[in-house]
């Protein structure tokens, strides 16, 4: 069964018809031609499909497109402005935070969303005390908060270094929504 939906993707409004079974990931990749989010496991276990919806990171493979009618999405392809890479993208390049690159768009979206959560005072399973938790996060916090993004190449050490660089360079990584 079909439904007409509108998505605001990386600053562009797109209205189109989808089968109600279509995930947000498949809508982005197959219908809108945005192949930045990747299909890794397609079951919410690897994080390669991570995008920001209303500024919050989610697994786009476990979201139905029709349930997100009207939503504003940012993919890794939409993080940069016209002249500069996003500080997180720059940091992944500077720190060599990838090998094959397949998980990278998901890692970058997740990292951007993750730092916003930390800036908003959200705790993690390794946070101590019950006060607000801000940035900069230590390496243990970064690893725990990024545990939903797997990298089969094992580039984790440099991914942590990249996120560290990004949070130092821009303590308040700019809002994406």
């Amino acid at each position: 069964m079909d439904a007409e939906i509108t998505l605001h993707v990386d600053g562009r409004e797109r209205t189109f018809t989808v089968d109600t079974r279509t995930t947000l990931l498949d809508a982005l990749r197959d219908r809108l031609g945005n192949t930045s989010p990747k299909k890794g496991c397609d079951h919410g276990q690897c994080g390669a499909c991570t995008v920001l919806v209303e500024g919050r990171r989610i697994n786009s493979c476990l979201a139905l497109a029709v349930a997100h009618d009207g939503a504003t999405l940012t993919t890794a392809a939409g993080l940069a402005d016209e002249t500069d890479l996003h500080p997180m993208q720059r940091a992944f390049l500077d720190q060599d935070g990838f090998q094959c690159g397949y998980c990278t768009p998901g890692q970058i979206c997740s990292a951007v969303g993750m730092l916003q959560e930390a800036n908003a005072g959200h705790p993690s399973a390794v946070s101590t005390g019950d006060g607000p938790t801000g940035t900069p996060l230590n390496d243990e916090e970064i690893r725990e908060r990024m545990s939903g993004n797997l990298c089969r190449c094992g580039a984790y050490v440099n991914i942590v270094a990249a996120i560290n660089q990004a949070q130092q360079a821009a303590p308040q990584v700019r809002q994406e929504s």
Binding site: G44, G47, T50, R56, R57, I58, N59, L62, A63, S110, G113, M114, E117, A120, G121, H122, P123, S124, A125, S127, D130, R145, M146, S147, G148, N149
Partner: peptide
């Protein structure tokens, strides 16, 4: 992350944070 949950029911906040991933908890 709710302040009342964290301060009065830490068992609940900790249980939630030990489950799934940041992306899944957002949904």
């Amino acid at each position: 992350a709710h302040p009342q949950v964290r301060s009065r029911y830490p068992v609940l906040s900790q249980a939630l944070l030990s489950g799934a991933s940041g992306q899944l908890r957002n949904a």
